[in-house]
Design a protein around this nucleic acid. Structure first.
Lengths: 193, 193
DNA sequence: CCTTATAGGGTACGTCCAGTACCCTATAGA
DNA sequence: TCTATAGGGTACTGGACGTACCCTATAAGG
């Protein structure tokens, strides 16, 4: 009474199960046995596809999410920056982001995992969005042309990430985002003569 | 043929052994069995003092290091900032720093551990050092008084930390430190009218 | 000086989990 | 219809955390 799943179908089932486990228990709670059980298969099928737990974790994460990079256009640099940070904050503090953070923290020990994460993190796309934001601000005369610089563009997101690393886990309060924009980002843009 | 160690003495021996293990193998390599063996005792003696591995890890880390916070006074804000970053970079990329990073990454999952780390990381002391640096710059007329702001003070170290999180593990190149100072920190100070 | 509570030491578990090994069987494709 | 391949079942090794038990050295008090 067949219907033994194979190939694509089974692979999707495993990834789905792994993604669920990730969402429920984070990366540390992602165990091969439980994924196998949940997918209604066994560890063989998993290890035939991914060499170890980390690889499965990443695959499951990317299966569960294609991170959308926002590109707000509010008419002011302050509005754009704040919107970017708020979106990012929302993403990172969602269950989704919890998975990502869990993976990232696990990656600190595992260089291979870190590389894979970086490739999938969309960091460059993010930086590009900030740069075009700055371009628009320059066009409006809101910022000097010298403000369009990759490191300037990357600074707010880096500060947000650092904030996450400091605090425990939950969402970063909005006041902090505003502070990053008003006390750091805007003065920085202004100061680049 | 006694000389069974007790109390203080035994505790120091355990911490010493744990610190050595940390240095050699990082936090993931810190196992209770090996610490016990290395200290010439057994796990009972350890668990009687620390409730779990994480607690021992932190205790061992602080036993092995009292982080000295530098306070350079080179005569210019740029020189001071660069020196601070260089010192920090050296600390973080040393075997010592590897231990710290290893603990931090493990702490991302464990709020209790994160708190203990934060308490011991000397972050406030570090921020104070940057603030007095800024004070001196204001006194010299190098920076506007409004530049003395906690978030401004914390920014360069946060950027350095983010850089560590991005890259794999090793030392951050000096060019990056210079860029953080010249392209972000100094313009930021300048821009705070 | 003797007695006793306490802390160390030895050791063996129970449990969980990664990763591997075998062996049997359904299924696709020739 | 036959056969190579991929799934499934299951058991096992090895490492690690944390616990339980029981024996013994030692410190402190009468």
């Amino acid at each position: 009474m067949g219907t033994r799943r194979r190939g694509e179908e089974l692979e999707r089932a495993i990834l789905h199960a792994a993604a669920e486990e990730l969402r429920e228990s984070g990366y540390p709670g992602l165990t091969m046995d439980r994924v196998a059980a949940r997918a209604g298969t066994n560890k063989n099928a998993i290890y035939r596809r991914w060499p170890h737990r980390a690889a499965l974790g990443i695959a499951a994460y990317r299966h569960l999410s294609d991170v959308a990079i926002p590109n707000p256009d509010t008419g002011t640099l302050r509005g754009d920056a704040l919107e970017m940070l708020r979106q990012a904050n929302e993403t990172w503090s969602s269950p989704h982001g919890a998975v990502l953070r869990s993976l990232l923290s696990a990656a600190a020990d595992d260089p291979a995992l870190l590389d894979l994460m970086r490739a999938r993190s969309g960091a460059e796309t993010m930086d590009r969005a900030w740069l075009t934001m700055l371009d628009r601000a320059v066009a409006r005369g809101e910022a000097p042309p010298t403000a369009v610089h990759p490191r300037v563009a990357a600074t707010p997101m880096m500060l947000l990430r650092a904030e996450y690393a400091m605090r425990g886990i939950p969402s970063v309060p909005d006041e902090i985002l505003i502070e990053i924009v008003d006390e750091v980002f805007l003065p920085l843009v202004r100061g680049r003569v």
